[in-house]
């Protein structure tokens, strides 16, 4: 098939950036969207032009590296997939495709379609961890976890931190990411000691990084490649309220680890 691509090109962080239009012929149905970009880049390199920079790693939908906004939808219109698993058979000959980076104040563009998502790392550093003793691994099943609880924790732990929730949110909020991280730890016994401090610290760090607030649009859930439910956001709100209003062990105004 033949496609008309409008791709965001931006030299570096300080460049203003603009759309550049490419006509790309001989796109195969079986290609993923990233392989389609590979094909474009081969041709650009052949012509001596700068290839389009985009981020990718596993190309199996599990690493969270790739992420593009395709015709206004983060990771494209197919539900529950990353853009590396979005295949060109979902497009038709002659389609016009807009490819943009994930846009948010907290995700500045580094180059073309590559954005800096290290704000997510800093949110996790603020509280997305458990304290565990070092030494040999504990015995399996030494800490009992009920099956439904383990399942729910795993649903949250599926988050690959790709940032599509932020990209899709009209408010540029990171609440689904935060909710997934807080829930998968908060549901398990190992996550209990830091549970209150974690909610406070991660929310505080999220705000410091310049993400927006949640207005329950549910755009995040719709584009999440791992289909993380917004129900986890309710859980995050609950943990935050408990920590802020009912937990006397954390001094008011102090959010450990946060900015």
């Amino acid at each position: 098939m033949k496609l008309t691509l409008h791709i965001w090109r931006q030299k570096n962080r300080s460049d203003e950036g603009r759309f550049v239009t490419y006509e790309l012929a001989d796109v195969d149905d079986h290609m993923s969207l990233l392989e389609m970009l590979d094909l474009l880049n081969e041709r650009l390199i052949g012509k001596g032009e700068e290839p389009v920079a985009f981020e990718h790693d596993c190309r199996e939908g599990i690493c969270g590296s790739c992420g593009l906004v395709i015709n206004g939808i983060a990771h494209g219109k197919e539900k529950g997939t990353t853009v590396c698993q979005l295949h060109m058979r979902h497009f038709a000959d002659g389609d016009v495709v807009y490819i943009e980076p994930f846009r948010a104040r907290a995700f500045p563009v580094i180059k073309d379609l590559v954005v800096d998502r290290s704000a997510f790392d800093r949110i996790v550093q603020a509280g997305g961890f458990v304290s565990a003793r070092t030494g040999s691994a504990p015995d399996g099943n030494a800490v009992p976890v009920a099956k439904p609880v383990a399942d729910l924790a795993m649903d949250a732990a599926e988050c690959i931190g790709c940032g599509a929730c932020v990209a899709a949110c009209p408010n540029g909020a990171a609440m689904l990411f935060l909710a997934a991280k807080i829930s998968h730890l908060g549901l398990l016994p190992q996550g209990q000691p830091e549970r209150s401090a974690r909610a406070r610290a991660m929310v505080s760090r999220m705000e410091y990084e310049g993400f927006g607030s949640c207005t329950n649009y549910r755009e995040c859930e719709a584009v999440c490649p791992k289909r993380i439910s917004v129900n986890f956001i309710a859980r995050l709100n609950r943990d935050f309220m408990k920590a802020s209003l009912f937990n006397e062990t954390i001094p008011a105004g102090k959010a450990a680890g946060g900015a």
């Binding site: 206004g72 943009e100 846009r103 948010a104 540029g172 310049g210 927006g212």
Partner: peptide
């Protein structure tokens, strides 16, 4: 805060879930 969280807007925007009331 929310208006400031995305300085460069999307060229194309296709809402999936956000209904008229919410927006």
């Amino acid at each position: 805060r929310n208006w400031g969280s995305r300085p460069v807007k999307y060229q194309v925007r296709a809402y999936q879930e956000a209904d008229y009331a919410a927006r």
